[in-house]
């Protein structure tokens, strides 16, 4: 756990998420190397990078699900344990067994278990909140539906509703648009924009470079190390894409116009690893 000295005093409270020197390795292979990352509050941020770049691991390390070998993470200046109530999480849809015997409403209610505390069952108020969250993602008609009978896009929306009832200030979403239909994608992005407009910070692991500029206002480019970070307009450059993705950039449709100079917040001087 990243527990630096002085958990009482706030450390870098101006950032919704502050990551410093974070390194994660599996069996001596670094998956994330020396990550320094600052995300200001109130942005809708994408984390992009090729397969194996460590995008999911970055989120899991920030959430304490993966133990880093070095570094620390702060939320609004606080450590993870202190800030836990302000954090919402939408894991990858494939991370659970959707044949679990339960319905959509029950899954959304699970987002309230942490706040309910021990020995307390979710009551009418919890049910109402879960129903409201389902309505927010356009799933109010599916509350009683078995989760095994939902489509992929509907399952994804149930997961997002579960994070909504957490009523967090900063949300992490791991590939929320993977394998969903166009309608769901529009619904989800409209919802994430509303969250951002309400002052929340939304961090999304994203795989579709062609929509980065349309959907997001902040961008983190990752390939084991941080390649670049900052406002999309400054960071989304052909040069940064090449450094992040290597030769695969030819596949990207939405290449930005050739930039005069590299984005000012891009970290210069560091070569992306091969």
């Amino acid at each position: 756990m990243p527990q630096g000295a002085g958990t009482d005093g706030l450390h870098e409270p101006q950032f919704a998420l502050h990551v410093e020197d974070l390194t994660v390795s599996y069996h001596t292979n670094p998956v994330l190397w020396d990550i320094d990352l600052d995300i200001p509050p109130g942005v809708l941020a994408a984390v992009v990078g090729p397969n194996g770049a460590g995008k999911s691991t970055l989120i899991k390390a920030a959430l304490g699900l993966v133990r880093p070998v070095a570094g620390h993470v702060r939320y609004f200046g606080q450590g993870y344990a202190a800030a836990r109530r302000r954090i919402g999480y939408v894991p990858q849809r494939s991370s659970v067994d959707w044949d679990f015997p339960t319905d959509a409403l029950d899954v959304v209610t699970m987002g309230l278990y942490g706040k309910l505390g021990w020995f307390r069952r979710p009551g009418r108020a919890a049910r109402a909140r879960a129903l409201a969250a389902l309505a927010d993602v356009g799933m109010q008609d599916y509350a009683a539906r078995q989760i095994s009978q939902l489509s992929g896009g509907q399952q994804q929306r149930v997961f997002i509703a579960r994070a909504l009832v957490q009523d967090a200030d900063i949300y992490f979403l791991d590939e929320p648009l993977a394998g969903v239909d166009a309608t769901t994608e529009r619904t989800i992005m409209a919802l994430l924009r509303r969250l951002r407009d309400a002052g929340k910070t939304v961090i999304v692991v994203h795989h579709d470079l062609s929509t980065v500029r349309r959907y997001f206002d902040w961008l983190v480019m990752l390939n084991v190390r941080i390649i670049a970070q900052g406002p999309v307009s400054e960071v989304y450059t052909a040069e940064n894409l090449r450094r992040t993705y290597g030769g695969q950039v030819a596949l990207i449709e939405d290449l930005p116009p050739a930039p005069g100079a590299e984005g000012p917040t891009a970290e210069g001087g560091q070569d992306g690893p091969r």
Binding site: R84, I87, Y89, P91, K115, R162
Partner: peptide
């Protein structure tokens, strides 16, 4: 511990994020 066991069985990572 009904609701805790249920959440741990369905989605242990999410349970951990909620502080269980």
């Amino acid at each position: 511990f009904w609701k805790e066991f249920k959440l741990v069985s369905f989605d242990p990572d999410f349970a951990r994020v909620q502080g269980l």
